[in-house]
Write a protein that binds this DNA or RNA. Sequence first.
RNA 1: GCCCCGGUGGCGAAAUUGGUAGACGCACAGGACUUAAAAUCCUGGGUUUCGAAAGGGACGUGCCGGUUCAAUUCCGGCCCGGGGCACCA
Length: 844
Amino acid sequence: MARYNYREVELKWQSKWDTEKVYRAKNPGDAGFDPKQKPYYVLDMFPYPSGSGLHVGHASGYIGTDIVARHKRMLGFNVLHPMGWDAFGLPAEQYAISTNQHPRQITDVNTANFRRQLKLIGLSYDWDREIDTSDPKYYRWTQWIFLQLYKKGMVYRKEMPVWWCEELKTVLANEEVINGRSERGNYLCERRPLTQWVFKITAYADRLLEDLSLLDWPESVRKMQSDWIGKSLGAEIDFKLESSGETVTVFSTRPDTLFGVVALVLAPEHPLVAKITAPAQKAAVEAYVKRAASKSDRERKAEAEKITAENTGAFVIHPLTGGKVPVYIGDYVLADYGTGAVMAVPSHDERDFELAKSTGLPLKKVIKPAAGVDDKDCFTEPGVMTNSGEFDGLTTEDGKVKVTAALEKRSAGRARTTYKIRDWIFSRQRYWGEPFPLLIDEQGDIVLVEEIELPVQLPDMKDFQPSADGSSPLARAKDWVEVRDKSGRKLKRVTDTMPGWAGSCWYYLRFMDPHNTKAAFSKEAIEYWREVDLYVGGASHAVMHLLYARFWHKVLYDIGLVKEKEPFKKLFNQGMVTAFAFKDATGRLVPTDEVEQKGMDYVRKSNGEPVERFISKMAKSLRNVVNPDDVINAKGCDSFRLYEMFMGPLDSEKPWTDDGIAGCEGFLKKLWNTCTLEEGGLKLHAGEPSEKIWRSLHKALKRTNDSFELFNFNTAIAAMMEGLNEIRESGDTMTREQMEFFMKMLSPFAPHMAAEIWSMLGHQTWIDFAAWPEYDAAKTVQNDFELVLQVNGKIRKKIRVPINMEESLAVPLAHQELAEWLTGKEIVRSIYVKNKLMNVVIKG
RNA sequence: GCCCCGGUGGCGAAAUUGGUAGACGCACAGGACUUAAAAUCCUGGGUUUCGAAAGGGACGUGCCGGUUCAAUUCCGGCCCGGGGCACCA
């Protein structure tokens, strides 16, 4: 056979796909658009084009979506499969600073490298739709959408305690700060009161929560979003200060425990603290407040197990019993959640229980466990109310309602829902982002930039470094900041920029109509494509991008700009590709290139000492980062694609091995050798097609079709390998029809070889749009099969019998075959599973 | 602490509704072809035990128990790994 020169063949097809724009998706109004063809939109989370380029881990999601896109085209869908660059934002800017280059320049270089790498993988993107969020032609519309959200009342400016990162010299959103450290760079952050631009995402909290039920998303991501939104139902309860009659309101999810209150606890920052503190307590309370303020959030968390509080000396009146309740302050109460004040019920809340322990406050049991449930000093589960006057005997569930109603009647409380989610801090004091399309006049009032003036171009600044004083770098571009409107009025531009999330909040919509210069996207395009059918990306975006994008989408829905309530119908998280790493006996990491295999073991090259193999993230320090360029050069793109999928199901984490790819390369070589003649041309069977080969092909097709349900393409590839092995063992060759069948089935996975053999079969048309083969179960049926004979569940024998054998025939046959085990035993019964097995149950 | 996901050979893994555990591949061992190598092809293997061999027995999907004729699959209790949340009242 002629040796398969994969790189030559792959480059040939890749260049044809490119120049003939094979994967261009047609929009309504385009030449050749067929309104009867159904749309299918499959989207990757677009990458931030980093300086280090793609590694094999990024590629797995892209290959997965590419297989889906190619499959859907063959099923007759008009497939939208675009790619672009999430180029604005901190990562690009930090990289630019560290390499001392302008982010524009860096972005262009990195983008070119990413585009080259993606094309190398043979991904069937519609490159005509490529977008770059840092391109003025794109961010013009990001700014336009911002204005629509502004007009809808979704943007405000307010001084509030926000996260400030001194290292990054900017504020960050709550979602971007994890355990007091920045999500990007892992730098320490602190709370500072600052005036910032904020999105009113809390106004959509309920809908963001409820509509999760409309989505075909992984349970874990939906859970993370619902936890982040953190809705809790409860009541606000008013306590009157004994001294002044002023109201202190607490929030509680357990109004049924109201009779168990032994104290009120206010956050140290609560506005009433100074006012109510008794003279005798003043010094202690002030010291406590001061100490709490000086503690960072980290320290507060670190000391979480210790609940402390200080008595203010003030008392409030219990709204139902009229009893006196002391007021404490404690730093376990958060100022910005609920009302910044809680009622302490030590018998039924863990923290309050700890509080009672440290302050000597009494326990007051008002909930008894339901029958059969163990009681504890601190019983936090639902139960039955007791010591609660008229409410005794009510369940927790009923009690919540009845107590709240009683409070409402006395105007001392009301049902209330609170959320953990905070409004979204949207301004950044950084250079590399979209400027706000806002102006401020001399009175300090906000003026919107006229839509026809958009985009507000990011000024070209040589010195784009963040300012030391916390102001935005754009403030230094004096000429840019100061403008006059038509009437000559002096105005100043807002100098903050938008966060990196802005561009990714709507890019999936721009892909539907990327070149529109009159609108962000046309009505026709939206009405045709509607939503993303399949969205694939890493799980790390579960809250942040996916929450922000859903929020923008819902506002756009309310304005009438989009037609679906949700942007991403089905979400799929691809698993991380990890790599093997090594450590020596002392636990020290040993770089991969210093290790070699000796038999079944791994040893250090230099001294032969044994090292232990384990799985870790790919890391430069371990020298186990694998670059797809190298793999493709060595093994070919089709082999690379197959192996990425063959390693395991798309959603599970799996380690890369350079050796593993040999199996996929071998499969392709074997397939080539099976299909082609040494002197060139194809090895085609002329006469009657082999039934065995049809059986193998249809069996493989069944499993391939099934793999599109769970995206476990490893099973599809295994099925094709098995099919090929069977074909080779049969000793027959494929007919033209059979070879076409195989190539079509292979095409989404290894598109280059499929295209090559397809064209050798004489086709002038693209295999990419050939109809996907029809599965025919009848073709897989055999006349006989191996019936498994068991005695008491243990396999004793296997016999070949005709298919669909009746039980009446099978039972005596089995008994006869199993005579050796059955003689002299009492047969209790015989269980016959048609076409599978027979289990004879005996006694004695 | 709470929630979610996972644990199957030396390794990656497979196994419709409970019905032959380990498909497919890697690595390994042995062999064929070759002056040699590359390439290609063939064979082998869960563990253990009996047997000279052919072949057989027992055990085996993290651990312990349960349901069932039959459990990787269902139920209960644990152990380990990964991820998320963590004073949210």
